[in-house]
C-alpha cells in the first residue's frame, strides 16, 4: 500500500471527523441552549392588558337631566338636547363621536328590542350638524351581528345619516382589566373603535330584563363585552356596576317612547310593548336609569345595581335632585 493512499484516507477521515464533530457541537449547543428544566405552567394570568377606557363625561355646571314627552322620537330628541343647553355643549367641530345603540337582536324596530333607527339617524344628524368629523355606530349584539344591525334598521339609518357602522370583529376586541373589578379582568372588550374618540353617546330603549330587572343606559354597555360574557349573569348587578365604572359617556339617551314591559330583553310580540311617549337625555346615566325604571313601574329598590353604581360614585339614584328639565312636544 502506498503512503499517498494512506495519507488520502487519513485526510478523508479527518474531514469526516470534523464534520461529525461539527454536527455534535451544533446538536449539543442547540440542545443545551433550548434545555428547559421546568414544565410549562399552563394558563397564566395575562399581563398584556391595555389601559381602561378614557373618561368622556362632562363636568360643567349645566343641566344634567331632561325628560321630554312626545310621540316623535326625532323631535323629542332635539328638544331634549336643547333643554340641556344645545348640541354645542356636547359636540364641538372636529369631534370624533362614537354612538353605542342597543342592536342586540335581529328583530324589526317595532318590537322595540333594539334602539329605534329613527333615533339613531336623528342623533347622527345632530352630531354631524354640530360639526363632528365622524360618527361611528357600534355594538356587539347577542344575535348575529350583521343580521341584527340590518334587521333592526340601525345600520341603514346610521349609514343614511352619514355615520360609519362598525360590526364587531375579533380584531376589534382588546383584553382589558378594570381596576378593582373581579369580573372585568383580562376580558375582551370592544375597545378598538373607541381609539381616538372624543365623545361617547349611549342610546338605547327602556326594556324589561329578566335577570337584572331592567336594561337601560347602564346595561347598554354590556354590548361592549366580548367572549362568553353570559357567565356574568351569575353576578349581574356587579357587572352592571362595573360597566358603569368602565364607561363614562358624554351623554346617554334613553328612549321610553315605547317600552318593553315584559318578555325582556328579547320581547318578540307587539303585546310586550307599551307606549309611554317619554325620552330621557342625561349626563348622569344612573339618574337616567332611575327615572327610566319608573316607566316600567319599578322603583330603584327593585334594581340593586342602581344603588351599587351610585355607591361607586357613578351618579345619583335620586334623579329629582338633578332638577330635571321637563318639557312636552305635542
Amino acid at each position: 500500500m502506498k503512503a499517498g493512499s494512506d495519507e488520502g484516507s487519513r485526510r478523508e477521515f479527518l474531514i469526516r471527523a470534523a464534520r461529525a464533530g461539527a454536527t455534535l457541537a451544533l446538536a449539543g449547543t442547540a440542545g443545551l441552549a433550548l434545555h428547559d428544566t421546568s414544565a410549562p405552567t399552563g394558563v397564566t394570568a395575562s399581563t398584556a392588558s391595555g389601559p381602561p377606557l378614557p373618561d368622556w363625561s362632562l363636568r360643567d355646571d349645566g343641566p344634567r337631566l331632561a325628560i321630554i314627552t312626545g310621540r316623535d322620537r326625532r323631535r323629542t330628541l332635539e328638544r331634549s338636547i336643547d333643554a340641556l343647553g344645545g348640541i354645542g355643549r356636547f359636540i364641538r367641530p372636529g369631534d370624533r363621536v362614537l354612538l353605542k345603540p342597543n342592536a342586540g337582536f335581529a328583530t324589526p324596530p317595532d318590537l322595540c328590542a333594539t334602539t329605534h333607527p329613527d333615533l339613531v339617524g336623528a342623533m347622527v344628524r345632530l352630531c354631524l350638524g354640530a360639526g363632528a368629523r365622524s360618527v361611528i355606530v357600534t355594538d356587539n349584539p347577542v344575535g348575529d351581528p350583521a343580521t341584527s344591525f340590518r334587521l333592526s334598521g340601525i345600520a341603514e339609518a346610521a349609514e343614511q345619516a352619514g355615520a360609519t357602522v362598525v360590526l364587531p370583529r375579533e380584531s376589534l376586541f382588546r383584553s382589558l382589566s378594570l381596576p378593582g373589578s373581579t369580573l372585568i379582568r383580562d376580558w375582551p372588550i370592544l375597545a378598538e373603535p373607541f381609539d381616538g374618540i372624543d365623545r361617547v353617546i349611549g342610546i338605547c330603549p327602556v326594556k324589561d330584563h329578566s335577570r337584572s330587572g331592567a336594561t337601560m343606559a347602564l346595561k347598554n354597555w354590556y354590548g361592549l363585552l366580548g367572549g362568553r360574557r353570559n357567565l356574568f349573569h351569575q353576578r349581574i348587578s356587579e357587572i352592571i356596576r362595573d360597566l358603569a365604572v368602565m364607561v363614562r359617556p358624554t351623554l346617554v339617551i334613553l328612549d321610553g317612547t315605547a317600552v318593553m314591559r315584559r318578555n325582556g330583553p328579547t320581547g318578540g310580540a307587539l303585546d310586550d310593548v307599551e307606549i309611554r311617549n317619554t325620552l330621557i337625555a342625561s349626563l348622569d346615566q344612573v339618574a337616567a336609569d332611575a327615572f327610566g325604571a319608573t316607566l316600567l313601574g319599578r322603583v330603584a329598590g327593585d334594581l340593586p345595581w342602581l344603588g351599587m353604581a351610585s355607591a361607586a360614585g357613578m351618579g345619583t339614584v335620586d334623579w329629582e335632585s338633578l332638577k330635571p328639565r321637563r318639557e312636552a312636544v305635542d
Binding site: S210, R211, T266
Partner: peptide, 16 residues
C-alpha cells in the same frame, strides 16, 4: 346554586 337564566332571557319567542 348560581343565578343565571341566560337561556330564558335570550329566548326569542313571545311569550317566552
Amino acid at each position: 346554586g348560581r343565578p343565571c337564566i341566560v337561556c330564558q332571557e335570550n329566548c326569542p319567542v313571545s311569550p317566552k
